[in-house]
Structures are given as structure tokens and as C-alpha cells.
Design a protein around this nucleic acid. Structure first.
Length: 315
DNA sequence: CAGACAATAT
DNA sequence: CATATTGTCT
């Protein structure tokens, strides 16, 4: 029914990042000093923290070529300038700048439930037809996320759905209504299923062969039309060879700030001043209310748990 | 040592 | 773009 449709659709809209709520880059990067202070690079003693990233990767910059412009060896590109010029015509005239770090290998991406949820939502709203990595990535509008990441995850996701499909419908009656389709406990792979089960699997996914559904999708948002700008953001995020992007979060200890709410593992791209796509006259309410997603909680109870993953109560 | 996840290559 | 394979981390 349409109600159903508008239901999850509404939720989708609610989940959209609101420029007001979202911070450009709150994720504080670990300063070199700090890293050293905690001896993060220590390979044998990694139990202390829970870094999902490389632990034996040499941070030192490329020996050859090095900085063509800046001959100052003293400058270790201090992260002090945490503020990145998000939207500036830098890429236009940034010929000389040309982020050198784009080629360097990127840290491992951590698919946190929230991020995955976004992924699923994006796919759901795109429809199987348009559910291709590129489109998904663009719709997700997640900063720092690359097509590769999405593609890889997408494949895993498809596997997950396929498994379910085979197990849930044996007689052809796929009347899985609502999100109950994902409610079943057909998990061969606890880990994978667990993560995926956290997010509401769109019904139409399990039965794409249903012409009736015929994919809703009144309009495609096409959020990130400005690919260039996105690139810039990505470059700024994972570009610099030294400090790490905002992926994963460093550690859950420290002083444990009472209001440690600025710990977003991923940064949903803000829909700042973007109005490139001409709305098809769709009476869409511009902007959305508040983007209140479940924020991770460093439960001091178990203490051992990493930081991400946990039943995203989601909605 | 084995399993799982993400990245990379084809 | 999708799939298969490899590498890395837990």
C-alpha cells in the first residue's frame, strides 16, 4: 500500500542529514604526539585499544619526490588546521595543489551499523535497478566513502539477501510484508547476518520478481551531483598521507567526556548549498527536521566491546 | 590456526 | 558493474 511506502519513505527523509545537526568535521584526528603518547603503533600491544586500521603501516611520507613546493622539512603538515576548506574553488585552480595523497592506500573502512543502515536505505530507495555502487555511493553522500567500499559491501549484502531469500521463501509465497522479512532468524553467518539484520531490509529486495511492486521511487534525489566537490572532500579527508581520515574512531578511553556525542564514525555529507538538480516540481518539503540517529555508546559495562555494532535499534 | 571483513584484481 | 581472489585483522 501506499501508506507502507510513505511510511518508510518518511523515515528515510527523517534520516537525511540536516545541515544544522551535522558537523563538517568534528571527528578529531589523532595528533601525532597523541598517537605516540599512547604508543598506538605498538604492534604487540594492540589489545589496549581497538583500532580497526592498519597497525603496522609506516606513516612516514614518501621518500622520493616528496614535497615539490614546500621544501620545508620541518613542516610535518600539522593537523592543527583541522578545518578543511570544504567548498572552495580549490579544485578548480588547485592544479598545483593536486592532492598527492589520493593515490596512497586508504585505511580500512568500518561498516558500522549506522553506516550500513544508510547503505541499505540508499539501496532501498534506489531500487534494485539503480542499486549500483556508483549510484548508491552518490545517494549515500557519505564523506570519504568510495565506490570501491560500496561495491564490496554491496556484494556482501547481496549474498546476505540471497541467503535469506532462499531460506525464507520455499514455496514461492513471498508475502513478506513490512520489515518482518528481515525478522526471521535464518542466519548461517552470525556475524554477517547480525550486522545486516540490524538494518531493516526492504521488502522489495526479497522479491524483485514482483511487477506489482514495480519499484516506487517517485523521484531520485541524486544528492551528490557535484562530484568534484565530493572528491575534494574525500581528498581532504583521506588525502593527507600523514593523519588518518575520519574513519573508525581512535579509542574509547581517555577521559570519556560526559557528552561524547561527537563521535560519528562516518560523516553523512551535508546537503549544504546544493541546488543543482531542478526539482521536478515535487512538493517535497525542503530540508528535514532533526537527524537523530543512534549514536554509538561506549558501554563501560562490558568494557571489552569495541565501539561500533550493536543492535541498532534503528527505529 | 581459523574465520570474517574489507580491499583489490579480473 | 559483478564476481573471484587475496590480504589483513580479530
Amino acid at each position: 500500500m501506499r501508506d507502507d511506502e510513505s511510511n518508510w519513505f518518511s523515515k528515510w527523509e527523517e534520516e537525511l542529514p540536516s545541515p544544522d545537526e551535522l558537523m563538517p568535521l568534528s571527528q578529531t584526528l589523532i595528533t601525532p604526539d597523541l598517537a605516540l603518547a599512547f604508543d598506538i603503533r605498538n604492534p604487540s600491544n594492540n589489545s589496549a585499544s581497538y583500532p580497526h586500521q592498519q597497525q603496522q603501516t609506516p606513516p612516514p611520507p614518501p621518500p622520493s619526490a616528496a614535497q615539490p613546493l614546500s621544501s620545508n622539512p620541518l613542516v610535518t603538515s600539522q593537523p592543527s588546521s583541522a578545518e578543511f576548506a570544504a567548498d572552495s574553488g580549490e579544485l578548480g585552480s588547485g592544479a598545483a595543489g593536486d592532492e598527492p595523497a589520493r593515490t596512497l592506500k586508504r585505511p580500512r573502512l568500518v561498516w558500522t551499523p549506522q553506516l550500513h543502515k544508510r547503505f541499505v536505505d540508499a539501496v532501498a530507495h534506489l531500487g534494485i535497478k539503480n542499486a549500483v555502487p556508483k549510484t548508491i555511493m552518490q545517494l549515500m553522500s557519505v564523506d570519504g566513502l568510495t565506490r570501491e567500499n560500496v561495491a564490496s559491501h554491496l556484494q556482501k549484502y547481496r549474498l546476505y539477501l540471497k541467503r535469506m531469500q532462499g531460506l525464507s521463501n520455499g514455496g514461492g509465497g513471498v508475502g513478506n510484508g513490512g520489515g518482518s522479512g528481515a525478522g526471521l532468524a535464518a542466519s548461517s553467518d552470525p556475524a554477517t547476518d547480525h550486522l545486516f539484520a540490524s538494518s531493516p531490509v526492504p521488502p522489495h529486495f526479497l522479491h524483485p520478481g514482483r511487477p506489482n511492486s514495480d519499484h516506487f521511487l517517485p523521484f531520485v534525489p541524486m544528492a551528490a551531483l557535484q562530484q568534484q566537490q565530493q572528491m575534494a572532500a574525500v581528498a581532504a579527508a583521506a588525502g593527507p598521507p600523514h593523519f588518518q581520515p575520519q574513519y573508525h574512531r581512535p579509542m574509547g578511553h581517555f577521559g570519556s567526556p560526559p557528552n561524547g556525542q561527537f563521535e560519528h564514525p562516518f560523516l553523512p555529507r551535508q546537503t549544504q548549498n546544493q541546488q543543482p538538480v531542478h526539482r521536478m516540481g515535487a512538493p517535497v518539503h525542503n530540508q528535514v527536521p532533526s537527524y537523530v540517529e543512534d549514536l554509538e555508546s561506549a558501554n563501560g559495562t562490558g568494557g571489552r566491546k569495541v565501539l561500533t555494532l550493536f543492535p541498532t535499534g534503528d527505529d
